[in-house]
Simulated assay, not measured.
Amino acid sequence: MSRSRTRRLPLGTVFIATALIAGVGGIVYSRVTAAPEPAAAAASRPADVAALVGTPDPKAQALIPANYAFVTPGTLTVATHPGQLPLADYGADNEQIIGVEPDIAKLIADGLGLKLVLVPVAWADWPLGLESGKYDAVLSNVTVTEERKKKFDFSSYRFDLLGIYTRTDGPIRKIETPADVAGLKVVLGASTNQDQILRQWDRQNIAAGLKPVEYQYFDDAVVGRLAVITGRADVSFEPNATGAYSARDGKVRRVGLFPGGWPNAAAISVTTRKGSGLAEPITQALNTQIASGTYAQALKRWNVGEEAVARSETNPPGLSAL
């Protein structure tokens, strides 16, 4: 990929987009001054971790199409978004990409008998980059949808769970229904499943005469989390993996848990080009790692064991448009 790797934005004054919907009109950009990063936080870069070693899988290797041209021969080139642990982020040296996504990618590459190269990408860039052949696969918390299945193939490796988190000393106790988010300031990622789900809830609430949600989008997850901790936002709506990982310091707590395809279950999957022939060998390699225990080892060390699948599937049922 030609673009430089993703860097953290400096903490301080940032811009957020607050979506005013249901006739209020368009996207309005409002300026929020985030609290400065504490010195301790600046020094607490995640430690680099030893790479896991996957179980070689001759059957998976034999399934690779003879005419498939890897981006680099003998190498599995995988795109991921280093934005937040436990999914993926830069380690202490600001070079190594660590997290459950890189770990799963390494296990797959080992199973296929290939060297792994990780390519850092922005979330919005992965579809075009994959279609144009800049990388062989994507592991970036991608949920299977029926729309995406028109262009891509998938190999499932985690259940998609979404969590709603608030500051530990905040007044919100639980969020169980769409009505519970009415009038709240919500931090979330743009063009994500949780964004679509929240908009569906918001439309429902507004139709019932309830207050609209105030949407807050941040390019930097750390800034979004600070907004919740300092009370500038009420809650974050995010992959449960990232929320649970950040909650370990006791500053935020979970008040809601929902399937990624609310109200339906959803699968997080390795994404490959449609018809490339890589999905089946990757699925096979994943199932070998599940059977050998290396898969469980990867999920356990990033505290995402509750998202484990019993078996990987090629092109599982996808979510319909919300």
Rank of each mutant, 00 (worst) to 15 (best):
F154L: 05
I64K: 05
R203S: 14
L210T: 04
A69T: 14
V187D: 00
S156K: 04
S276A: 10
D219G: 11
P36N: 02
A179E: 14
V228C: 00
I97S: 08
N287G: 05
P65K: 08
A227I: 06
A88W: 07
L161R: 08
N141R: 15
S276W: 01
L87N: 13
A241Y: 04
L210E: 04
F152R: 04
E37L: 14
V121T: 09
T55E: 14
R248Q: 14
G23V: 10
L63E: 14
K134H: 13
D136G: 07
R203P: 02
A137Q: 00
G260I: 06
N287S: 07
K174T: 13
Q284G: 05
A92Y: 09
V223S: 14
I16Q: 04
A50C: 07
T6L: 15
I16E: 07
L63W: 05
V14P: 00
A40M: 07
P82V: 07
W123G: 12
T75L: 08
R225I: 11
V252I: 15
S236Y: 09
A241P: 06
A285C: 06
I98K: 08
A285N: 05
N315T: 08
L226V: 10
A79N: 01
L9R: 15
S191N: 13
T75F: 07
G91S: 15
A22W: 10
F218G: 02
I98Q: 03
P281S: 05
E131H: 12
I108H: 02
R45D: 09
A298N: 01
S44F: 09
K185A: 02
E280V: 11
P82K: 07
L63H: 01
I108C: 03
L11M: 13
E101V: 09
A137Y: 02
A39V: 14
R254Q: 15
D136I: 02
K251C: 01
A92H: 12
P82S: 06
Q96H: 13
W302Y: 15
G293L: 02
A190M: 11
V223W: 02
A35I: 06
V252M: 14
L184W: 02
L112Y: 01
F159T: 15
S4P: 10
T230G: 04
I16L: 11
T80D: 04
A79H: 03
T294S: 09
T6A: 12
R232E: 12
G113V: 02
S320C: 06
T283N: 10
T6Y: 10
I197N: 01
I27A: 11
G54W: 04
V142Q: 07
K134I: 12
G209S: 06
Q84K: 11
L257A: 06
L278G: 00
V14A: 13
R225T: 12
A137M: 14
N303H: 15
F237T: 03
K274V: 01
